[in-house]
Design a protein around this nucleic acid. Structure first.
Lengths: 253, 253
DNA sequence: TGTACATCAGTGAACGCGCGTTCACTGATGTAC
DNA sequence: TGTACATCAGTGAACGCGCGTTCACTGATGTAC
């Protein structure tokens, strides 16, 4: 995960880029060990081997360092999900969805504090700047792509009979730009699937199913498979059209 | 939300109970204003009008104060949900589910930091003691009650055809104690519904649908209604079997 | 190519702050005879 | 009912700590002529 887009020309610039990355690396390590609240500029500086005030040459404040870490975290999950999903056969939409889900969870388990940084409670006093928006959309974007591909392959996602109030429809229209083929029902289902995915990972990571679920690997898979099937990603095109049982199947989960 | 179970006998005990509650109230206020990381014993003591060391007569450490607040928070949502759900006609299972969902969200919007305290990222370095377990189960317990009542009224919850691996089934058996009538599929669906509920509130509160959804009231309702219908809480017993239009009829309103 | 100047990285001291927790103490409230 | 003693609440000072940020500074690296 790099920091600058332009290549360094002078030796000074190269060193600057290296040090910027080293600061971020150390900061990430501290974050991983103690969480965001304990992230201190001074401690990072100490470990990098600088005096604390020198860090200000690289990050104008602690919040800017945090922002860099947040962006990196979004890009890390994003990359992981993109790679995981890309490894699956294009036509296997359910498989792609599952791969994306497992990538998110796998990354979260390996980087719990970074996950908490982006999907947990907001850091008090910290306001996310605009640059965090784009990287944050990578993962949901992958989900929308999978669904769009499924529709392009002839599947019907979302139950057209489910009515959605006008006010919600107009919100959903904003999302339509990224997935023009999806119906309102499909978009709603997409957001719900995305919510459930993050909700499930958060529940596991934050201990809300402690002493209830023990085999989280299997449990997560069962859940995400159910979501993918309910999304309509599983059934072959031919079987879907005249499946009289579909209504009951969808409603009951 | 009280602290001691035994009634105070002497004047000293009465004062002690009052002060304990005042400390908690002030702490709750600070929590609401700045979040859990900023919760400081000294600041609370200052506002209560004590010297900081005096607080140690009431709470042996900052963590114990936090624990008290966490328990209170669970009890607050719990009570709110129980009340909200109790106000709905017993046979209206979908209505009860919606009332419970709205109670959770309403409480969360009014007490965002307390919500974050119990459903957000864990407080770093803090380990939840055993006493937080019982209050934490109130809300999910209500959900299980609703589903159990639905089954008792003759509804079939959960798609029996959905296969669940043995390892997951055995985890679910632990839950069965609280809702003996529910099938594995129904229990799985219950956890997923609970996950989606908290996920949706968290997404809204933590800003993950910022610039995507604007009318959160309507959006939340649509989502939770969909979940309730998919759970199987909507259809009347007689209509369930042969009501082809059920989806649309119920979903609208 | 060599020199004068501008830019930048890193230093070290300081400011001002708040925190959790301990401890010996005073004085008030409760208890037992 | 009155007195002696035990219990408890609250005080104030102190310990030891770490934090973010500013500022005048030195010395090294880059740039323009």
């Amino acid at each position: 995960v790099t920091t600058e887009t332009t290549k360094p020309r002078t030796a000074r610039e190269r060193v600057r880029l290296e040090l910027t990355n080293e600061i971020k690396t150390v900061a990430r390590k501290h974050l991983a060990e103690q969480g965001s609240a304990a992230l201190s500029l001074r401690a990072v500086a100490r470990e990098v081997g600088m005096v604390s005030s020198a860090v200000y040459r690289y990050f104008p404040s602690r919040d800017d360092l945090l922002t860099a870490l947040i962006i990196d975290a979004y890009e890390m999950v994003g990359q992981r999900v993109v790679e995981g999903e890309a490894a699956v056969r294009r036509a296997d939409h359910l498989g792609r969805w599952l791969a994306a889900c497992r990538s998110v969870r796998g990354w979260a388990l390996e980087n719990p504090h970074e996950y908490a940084l982006i999907f947990g409670s907001p850091v008090p006093g910290y306001v996310a700047p605009q640059d965090t928006v784009d990287p944050a959309t990578i993962v949901p974007g992958v989900l929308l792509n999978i669904m769009s591909d499924a529709v392009a392959d002839g599947r019907v996602l979302g139950d057209a009979r489910r009515s959605i109030p006008r006010r919600v429809r107009s919100d959903l229209h904003g999302l339509r730009a990224k997935a023009p083929q999806l119906s309102d029902q499909a978009l709603l289902a997409a957001i719900m699937a995305w919510t459930l995915l993050i909700g499930a990972v958060s529940f596991e990571l934050f201990g809300h199913l402690h002493n209830v679920i023990f085999d989280f690997d299997a449990f997560f898979d069962v859940q995400m498979r159910a979501v993918g099937i309910d999304l309509g990603l599983a059934a072959p095109v031919s079987a879907r059209v005249d499946d009289g049982d579909r209504g009951r199947a969808r409603v009951s989960e």
